[in-house]
Design a protein around this nucleic acid. Sequence first.
DNA 1: CGCAGGTGACTGACCAGTCAGTAACATGTA
DNA 2: TACATGTTACTGACTGGTCAGTCACCTGCG
Lengths: 213, 213
Amino acid sequence: MEYKDRVEAALGKGTMRRRSDRPQAIISAAIRLVGEHGFATTRLEDVAEAAGVSKAAIYLYFESKEDLFFALVREGALPTVADTNAAVARHEGSLSDLLQEIILGIGHLMAHTELGTIVKIVAAEARNFPELVTYHRDEVVARAMGTISSVIEKGIASGEFRPCDARAQAALCIFPVLMNGIWMNSIGPDPSIVDPDALLKAHAETFIRGIAA
Amino acid sequence: MEYKDRVEAALGKGTMRRRSDRPQAIISAAIRLVGEHGFATTRLEDVAEAAGVSKAAIYLYFESKEDLFFALVREGALPTVADTNAAVARHEGSLSDLLQEIILGIGHLMAHTELGTIVKIVAAEARNFPELVTYHRDEVVARAMGTISSVIEKGIASGEFRPCDARAQAALCIFPVLMNGIWMNSIGPDPSIVDPDALLKAHAETFIRGIAA
DNA sequence: CGCAGGTGACTGACCAGTCAGTAACATGTA
DNA sequence: TACATGTTACTGACTGGTCAGTCACCTGCG
């Protein structure tokens, strides 16, 4: 792609940043539509319309439908991981409080923002795009699990938590949060079955009791 | 469909059952392929090949791709719900043991059988097939949650569990199990991140500690 | 002018669904 | 037994609609 190459030469390789906010508008529209319908069923023409451009314009910013898809998954999750790491780094106080903060914080993003949509998309499309799995496993999941399990290990060492498999417990800490996000993006908000926010609170309490010394 | 009408007249309306096991072979192949690639991306020709028939033969047993899809989701989950209800009904002993039995039992099916695939499929395709959501919410989820929350309520009443929101706890009991199933069917078995069986054991222990009185 | 930043109309591939045909087996009948 | 007639279960080849990706052309601005 000539245009892309020229811009990359001017602004640096890697994440393309344009002066216009077109790419971001396209990605946002794509996250919403792909989250609803899946990758294959989402028509580029609909993405274009939702972003207020023509289909051909998408090809000014992305090489292909697949390329847009990767961009969407990449941009959708990284900020959250970074934010969580930062929150852990600056936290002071009991580790139980920190865990609760993590659960409610990530949980809220999962249930009510694009992040839950991304998780659903990755789960749904994983087998079709193996690179996606590798990327997410290494860049998102491994990091998040590492952060949480280090918190749990610290708590075990300090006697705040009972001795247990910190990695397994880290997974158990985020699995309900992830499932809640998937639920909200599939079955949808349906308080008659589960109220997402009440569930997160209950999870924090039960989980922390469950690993308490 | 003349032939279909005649068979339905003879064997009853609804789920068509033939003497041959073709429909089941087609459904099994479809569960595997749709679980891997999603509904839209799965080619009926590939399902046919995997089932050892021609594409046209599928139309002898199912009205359309969508019809096959519904059959697959319906047949895939119901037996498990029934089995779980039966296990609960015949259980004697502590409710903690019963919960552990439920977690490990359903958990094993989720992680290692078609059931996990079905859950993944429903989550992924929910927005495209609203009838699917209604069906699953009412026939599968509501029942399973009802069963589990009745166990928890009984435990609260008997003093075995602490007072808490039984419905939310029921959701927390199965969410990690569901997520584990989705994980195994997307990111795949990867013990370096989570060992599915160890996770289930850890979940049973932590969850039961978490709601213990 | 020259060019960044578009667009609308087109095309080729792909695939659900159809249809005419067929092989294997059952049934009648002499 | 032999041969016609009918039925069941299935197939290969086709079609029509859909959509990712392309391309010739436009347009406002420095």
